[in-house]
Design a binder for these strands. Structure first.
Length: 487
RNA sequence: GGUCCUGUGGCCGAGUGGCUAGGCUCAGCUCUGCAAAAGCUGCUACAGCGGUUCGAAUCCGCUCGGGACCUCCA
């Protein structure tokens, strides 16, 4: 198995990855809250983890990938005082909360499917695990690290921090945190300013609520992940991931809950993906600078010059490392679109290459470089740089400028299959098969007619054919062995 | 205000203390009836100022700029 290094937020450095029980591997990723359409920033995170999931699988791990759907318990405003996001939307639209959940869950899955991300092994929901969440809250109370206040259960952060490292994930100092936490109004129920709710008492008008030992209420936000990761991956598993914006609060509290519950920190490796930015600022729902995937595909957005296909967008995301911010721009997307296109054209060309007797290239070294890139904390930009070396080889071989043996060609095909399709999850974007077959036939005929015209030195006709085809976005390329075309 | 991250050539974006990442754009060349495609070559950068070092974009300090978190957010 490949020697893989992963940047671990807990240690703030790259560590060699060691699975608890190889080849089995447990990975938990915080999923979306389904009260609105997912935006592109959300998609970036899930695409990043899709690559990680795919690569771990590719190098031989049997990964159980759990990604939750948050359909309850996520509060609208700070301090555990606000209203449930899903409930709020339901009231606005006069719908059942679960209607909202259903709409946006389906929408989320559709979008992820367009981006060709693999579904997780398990996609559990918060509302489906109310009992488990209550059990954890109870146990934490039994362990003396949570208290009840007017029907709401709070986690006692300061008490916990006396015997545990509460800030392990951020490296902050607790007293500084206590000093710097902004003043919150109406928080009299809490004993400590950092305390957070495990279970929240529901107001009369609240739509999503469940009975509990402490009265009718609903779960706090952080506890669902503790409940579901423990249930499906055990008290300790290998990788826990999520967006960087979850690190300081959500994940910090999640670790505290798990330790308070069973004495164990849940995951050995914490992976955090960086934000997608627009004009240098984080894309977020609250800032109102989000792009919806559909707006991006159609180009129907004031900041967009044109539409971009899902695979072009996926490629665009992969040209940046997952721990760097990625700034969104038309120019960068256009560049990626072209690069992606070259990658796919080269693959088509690879299928037609004829083997030489000898080889002038070291394709095995190229393959090794691809693995090395991915083993270095899933470095997709470097992987892509190596793949462009493969493109150069293929195109040059096609021009007769270098030699590739059958073994080389087979290895290049394997590299494409493994890295481009399996790991990066890119795929060819083509129309339906039937229309495609018909078009192939028509184009073959057209190019034959054009070849005849050229043979007769009737360049007026051959140019006219080429120009008219260009008008309908079909590009004709004259090569040594006849003409070819692409859209 | 506190904590942390970051500043790379026209644009995007990797990066190890010493060996031109890569993509896109632009210019030139090769190929071509002409194009396109492809290949080759060039535009060879590391915010500023100091320091450590034989040697720093890469380590340290300061200054300036950008961002994230501290409050719902992937």
């Amino acid at each position: 198995m490949e020697k893989l290094f992963i940047y671990n937020t807990l240690s703030r450095k790259k560590e060699e990855f060691k699975a608890i029980n190889a080849p089995f591997l447990g990975m938990y990723v915080c999923g979306p809250t389904v009260y609105a359409d997912v935006h592109l920033g959300n998609c970036r995170t899930f695409m990043s983890f899709d690559i990680i999931y795919r690569y771990l699988t590719h190098i031989g791990y049997k990964v159980r990938y759990v990604r939750n759907i948050t359909d309850a318990g996520h509060l609208e405003s700070d301090g555990d005082e606000g209203e449930d996001k899903v409930s709020k939307k339901a009231k606005l639209q006069q719908l059942e909360p679960m209607e909202i959940v259903q709409t946006y869950t389906v929408g989320f899955r559709d979008v992820m499917n367009l981006f060709n991300t693999l579904p997780p092994s398990i996609e559990p929901t918060a509302t489906g695990h109310i009992i488990e969440q209550q059990e954890i809250a109870k146990k934490i109370m039994d362990n003396g690290l949570a208290y009840e206040s007017n029907g709401t259960i709070y986690f006692d952060v300061e008490k916990y921090a006396r015997s545990n490292n509460y800030t392990a994930l951020t490296g902050r100092k607790l007293d500084e945190l206590l000093e710097n936490t902004r003043d919150l109004d109406g928080q009299s129920d809490k004993r400590g300013r950092l305390d957070f709710a495990l279970w929240i008492k529901a107001k009369q008008e609240h739509l999503m609520k469940w009975p509990s030992p402490w009265g009718v209420g609903f779960p706090g936000w952080h506890i669902e992940c503790s409940a579901m990761s423990t249930k499906y991956l055990g008290e300790q598993f290998d990788i826990h991931g999520g967006g960087m914006d979850l690190q300081a609060t959500h994940h910090t509290n999640e670790i505290a809950q798990n330790v308070a519950y069973c004495g164990k920190s849940p995951a050995n490796y914490w992976i955090h993906t960086n934000m997608l930015t627009v004009n240098g600022q984080k894309m977020s729902k609250s800032l109102g600078n989000s792009f919806l995937p559909m707006e991006l595909f159609t180009g129907n957005h004031p900041l967009l010059k044109k539409g971009f296909s899902p695979m072009a967008v996926r490629f665009f995301m992969m040209q940046t490392h997952y721990r760097s911010t990625l700034d969104f721009s038309n120019e960068a997307l256009e560049a990626s679109e072209k690069a992606y296109h070259r990658l796919m054209e080269s693959y088509k060309l690879l299928q037609t290459l004829k083997a030489s007797d000898s080889s002038s290239e070291d394709v095995a070294a190229l393959e090794r470089a691809c693995y090395d890139a991915m083993n270095d904390d899933f470095n997709t930009p470097v992987l892509i740089a190596h793949l462009f070396e493969a493109i150069r080889m293929i195109n040059s071989a096609n021009d007769g400028k270098l030699k590739l043996t059958q073994a080389d060609l087979d290895l290049l095909k394997a590299i494409y299959q493994h890295f481009v399709f399996d790991v990066m999850g890119l795929k060819k974007e083509e129309e339906s098969g039937k229309a495609n077959t018909a078009l192939e036939g028509v184009m073959k005929l057209v190019l034959e007619l054009r070849a005849k015209a050229k043979a007769n030195k009737d360049f007026a006709t051959s140019d006219e054919i080429r120009n008219k085809l260009a008008e309908v976005n079909i590009q004709v390329k004259d090569g040594k062995e006849g003409a070819s075309w692409n859209l």
